[in-house]
Amino acid sequence: MHLDEIVARKREDWSRITGVPSLGAERPQPAVPGTFAAAITGPEVSVIAEVKPKSPSKGQLLPLDRAVEQARTYAAAGASAVSVLADTAFFGGSPELVAEIATDAAVTVPVMYKDFLVDTRQVELAYATGADAVLLIVRAVDDVLLKDLIQTATGLGLDALVETFTAEEIDRALAAGAGIVGINNRDLQTFAVDLENSARLRARIPAGVLTVSESGIGSRADLTRVAGHGFDAALIGENLLGAADTAQALGELLGVRVGEVAA
């Protein structure tokens, strides 16, 4: 299942939807602009840890009944933010799951709503969950829609992490007004991972724009290399989800001992 197929399914689904689906409750409080961006800004490279129940390439990764606890563990172990899959058909998440995690008192870090956004109403739905940010994939939309998605998010007080894979996509993201640019090391057409993709493309992003390296980061050495290239944060999912001890694995990535963050 490749990106084009997933995006085609999303477009078809949203073409049949009228209005914005309700989560059954109002957002508990307005979004605070810049919350997510501030969380991943600092002298050290930050980790955005991902709650992903399954993937098309790897199958089941995390039982749904453990998803909230996983997010709590991430927050307690030093993650600067949590990314939560809102897609149901391909990744086993849901907007309701994002809302449950975003409103959980023990998840003390910002939450990013991660889906394949092809309609501005999806940004409105993300806002309703209580999320602080949304992920936008440049390859999934045209330039006009990309700008509309960023502006909709900004208007609601949400940050937008704009994901790219090529130099041309970085240029498109910047032209659309992206303030946070992600470089994915995973080709969403083939699912092949190359950590050097971040290294090759980082210099194309100017100062003043936050940067995130995504996928393929599985060790302290990988994270250190990403930091050395000037990235502000790394988005890490499967390498944490597969760990026997999530807190220990995240601590090792961050270079801290278990318990040191909370001390």
Rank of each mutant, 00 (worst) to 15 (best):
Y74H: 08
K58E: 14
R72G: 09
I183Q: 04
D143H: 02
E50Q: 00
V193I: 15
S213M: 12
V134N: 01
G93N: 05
A173R: 01
N239G: 11
L149T: 08
A140T: 06
F191T: 15
R220F: 01
R9E: 14
P206Q: 04
A105T: 14
T41H: 00
I48N: 03
K10I: 08
E12Q: 05
D65A: 11
I205V: 10
G228H: 10
Q122T: 03
G228W: 11
V7N: 11
W14F: 09
A76Q: 11
A234D: 04
V162E: 12
V84K: 02
A244Y: 03
D222V: 05
D194K: 15
G255H: 11
G218T: 04
K147F: 01
A243D: 06
S215T: 14
A203T: 14
L223I: 02
G42Q: 10
T164V: 07
F165R: 13
I150H: 06
I17L: 06
A81M: 10
I217H: 12
A227I: 10
I40S: 00
T35G: 13
A71M: 15
R66D: 13
L188N: 03
V118A: 04
Q60D: 04
V162Y: 15
E50S: 13
L235E: 05
W14Q: 04
R121G: 14
T152C: 03
P53G: 05
G34H: 08
A203K: 12
L149P: 07
N197H: 09
L210W: 00
R16C: 00
A167D: 12
V209Y: 01
A178M: 06
Q70H: 02
A192C: 02
T154G: 06
A247E: 14
V123K: 04
F90Y: 11
L61E: 07
F91L: 06
S15C: 00
A77N: 02
Y127T: 00
A207S: 01
P110N: 10
A153P: 06
L161R: 06
A160G: 09
G155C: 12
F90G: 12
